[in-house]
């Protein structure tokens, strides 16, 4: 029953998104909702390793950037079509996720987090020093002139992100309700107890990190076309790492809906602030919201709703 309802929801969101492109002309709408969708994907992906498995990752920028630069390279050199870019971006970040997964073998807690932060810096430095990727100067990407089905390329990118976002959230739901997800929860709660109760800890952690990384890379693959000019420091940014960690925390890390709510709330607020005040305030907003939620609603929006519901029924 619940499964059917969620399937209908997924189909509705996708067809709704596609329909929108027939009605909304204002290009700014697509430009700004693209970012919201991107963060729904990133926050959901982050939550698979961070929320479900308990490994706090500061490397979102690296996975995203690797996906974006893989795509950028393939566009400028081979002019590959978008679906291939998504496959390639996802694959390269999956490999990075695999490597990070093995790191969890030795590093726990804050040491793991610091390692992922260092990894971000390493990836950014590598790109800065690789002329084939534009180095520090960056790279320009031209959007294809011809677009079928949509009136322009931005609308195609928007529709693509809607589909990826729905797919990502569906995958998170699936993981949460599978034995894989329950194994991850056991690892998050107590790794030693999990192992002594038969949970193949290393295998599940590596799989979790790989899945999370792959999804972040997929989120990065359409980005070169979106941004048109890509350079390392803004593509692999700490802002992105902090955002995609803050969103699940604000929404609630326990279930798939938490990161979605957090991403919508936070990135919409940031978009509005960028237009009305200045983008300088974006990180400040995250900081204030994060501190507020940690103190007042440690289980995020989802936890807040649950306790309100409980109070009403009691």
């Amino acid at each position: 029953m619940k499964k059917a309802a969620l399937l209908i929801l997924a189909v509705t969101v996708i067809s709704g998104g596609l329909l929108l492109t027939a009605y909304i002309e204002n290009q700014y709408f697509y430009f700004s909702t693209y970012i919201v969708l991107q963060y729904i994907i990133l926050a959901t992906a982050w939550n698979i390793l961070g929320g479900y498995t308990g490994y706090v990752n500061f490397g979102t920028g690296a996975y995203f950037g690797l996906g974006a630069y893989t795509a950028g390279y393939l566009i400028t050199n081979f002019n590959l079509p978008l679906p291939w870019l998504i496959v390639a971006g996802g694959t390269s970040s999956a490999v990075l996720g695999l490597a990070i997964g093995y790191l969890t073998l030795r590093l726990k807690g804050v040491y793991f987090s610091i390692a992922t932060l260092a990894m971000s810096i390493v990836i950014a430095t590598l790109i800065i020093n690789t002329p084939a990727l534009g180095g520090a100067k960056g790279m320009y990407i031209l959007r294809p002139k011809e677009v079928s089905f949509f009136s322009n390329y931005m609308e195609l990118l928007f529709a693509t992100m809607v589909i990826i976002a729905v797919f990502t959230v569906a995958l998170a739901w699936f993981i949460e309700n599978s034995w894989f997800g329950r194994g991850l929860a056991a690892i998050r709660d107590d790794e030693v107890a999990a192992a002594c109760n038969g949970v193949p800890v290393l295998r599940l952690k590596v799989l979790s990190a790989t899945t999370s990384g792959a999804l972040m890379g997929i989120a990065g693959a359409p980005y070169p076309y979106y941004i048109s000019y890509m350079e390392p420091l803004s593509t692999i940014s700490l802002d992105m790492a902090v955002n995609s960690l803050a969103m699940p925390l604000i929404g609630g890390t326990g279930s798939w809906i938490g990161p979605v709510l957090g991403a919508i709330l936070l990135s919409t607020t940031q978009q509005v602030a960028t237009v009305t005040i200045s983008s300088e305030y974006n990180l400040l907003i995250v900081g204030i919201l994060l501190v507020g939620f940690v103190i007042l609603a440690p289980n995020g929006l989802v936890g807040l709703f649950q306790s309100l519901l409980k109070r009403r029924t009691d």
Binding site: R182, A185, A186, R188, D189, D190, V192, A193
Partner: peptide, 8 residues
């Protein structure tokens, strides 16, 4: 020293 899975 008990090690429960506390979220379950």
């Amino acid at each position: 020293i008990p090690r429960p899975f506390r979220s379950m």
